[in-house]
Each structure stands twice: as C-alpha cells, then as structure tokens.
Amino acid sequence: MVGSEDCIEIDLARLVFLRGGAGKPLLILHDELGFPGWMRWNEELGEAHEQIVPLQPGFGRSEQLDWIRDYRDLAAYYARFVRQFGTPIDVIGFSAGAYLAAEMAAIDPGLFNKIVLVGPLGVRPTHGEIYDFLAVTARTHVAATVSNQDAVEFGKIYGGTMGSEQFMLFEAARAETSRLGWQPFMFDPSLPALLKGVPNKTLIIRGTDDLICPLGCVEAYESALPNAVANSIEGVGHRPEIEDPDAFIHLVRKFLS
C-alpha cells in the first residue's frame, strides 16, 4: 500500500495531502524534515485506519502561504483542512508535527478524539534544550534524528549519498521551519497555559536516546495536558516509528483501539 496523492484548495491555495489505508480516519502530521514516504508503520496502521497526511505548505509540494508565520497560524489553517474530513479525528504528530497538533488542540479540542505526540516540540522544556537543528547542516540534522543510523528503514529513506533533489527538499523544509519556529526556537510560550483546557486523551511517545526532543518537553506536556500519559521506547532516538516500528505500532494501536 502506498498513499495516494490528493489536493484540496483552501482560499485558493493548494494543500497537497496523501491518503492511504482503510478504516477510521487518522490525521498524520509529519515532522520538520517533511514526510519521508509510506513506511512500515503506515502499512500496519493502515489495516484499521485511513491515514490523511497533509504535506506542509512551503515544504516543496503544498503552496507556501505568506501569512502563515508561526505554528499557531498553521494550526488554524490545518483546522480548516481537518474539518473537511469530519471531526473529531484521531491524530499522530511527530516532532514539529506534534507541536502543530498541540496548537490545533489548543485552538479547538473538539477537532480531535485521541492525540498521539511523538518526540513533541512546541513547549519550553522543563530542563534541557530543544536541539538547535537549524545550526547544523541538513545531513547532520538528519543524522541527529536517529540513535541508530543502521536501522533498516532509516537506510531506506536517507541512506547513501544525498542527492541534489533530496537536499533541496530538506532545505525547503528547514527554511519553512525556520520561518515558523526560529524564535523562540520551536516552542510557544503560551501553549502550556492553553493546553490546560484540552481534555483529550493524549499519548506522548519519546525515544530514550532522543537528541532533538529533551525529556523536559515530555514533562512540560505532561504537566500541561490533564489527560496525558507518557511512554518511552528504549534505545531509539527521535524517530521511534522507523527505529523500532514494532514497539511504536504496539503503543499506538493499543492507545487508539
């Protein structure tokens, strides 16, 4: 199964999204490097869920929107997108995508049923710092997302020599991420206060070796969200879904079922 491409127009701007699988709709919000393609976890979750994956504006496929200048703007825009599929909907957000999911929930908790935040950025960590991936090259950034570069699926999507096309896509994604998240770096100071009013059941997943998202972010989310539980996956970094897909799928299935 591979997600098929579709697009939707919101205020004359094209938002490209992928959809695949069958069953209860599930919104997937990709991370700051862009959606890498349909992976094993998509296949397996696709047995029970139709996944809807918007490709973030400015990342090379969907049209960049000048007025979107922070993650809250993007969240409001995505809220309009999500309503076209019927709400509430379950959501999984990865890294900056988790930040986005949290902002959407803060705007309107009714958009979502259950929320999964993976390596979530978006809040000031209680301790530690969000890794400044904009102060390193794209290759170093990508490498920092995993604890094990030999993980099969990591090699499949990012292994070998980086081609120009892939490099330009990374740069587009990183430039747009910079546009939205440069300062304060990848967090919104008012988000924790707003999340106090989000009653949704929330699962937070973080790899124990995550270099990008410090444990302090997870703790900040736990104290802000009234119904959040955190789970860690041993020995993986910022991409548990491709470093240890079995553990990741198990946690997500159990939570969403």
Partner: peptide
C-alpha cells in the same frame, strides 16, 4: 551551517 542557514538564500 552558519554561513548558509536554512532560508537565508534563495532556492
């Protein structure tokens, strides 16, 4: 990485 931060130069 400092000379060419993401977004600094045109595509």
């Amino acid at each position: 990485e400092h000379t060419l931060p993401a977004g600094f130069n045109s595509e």
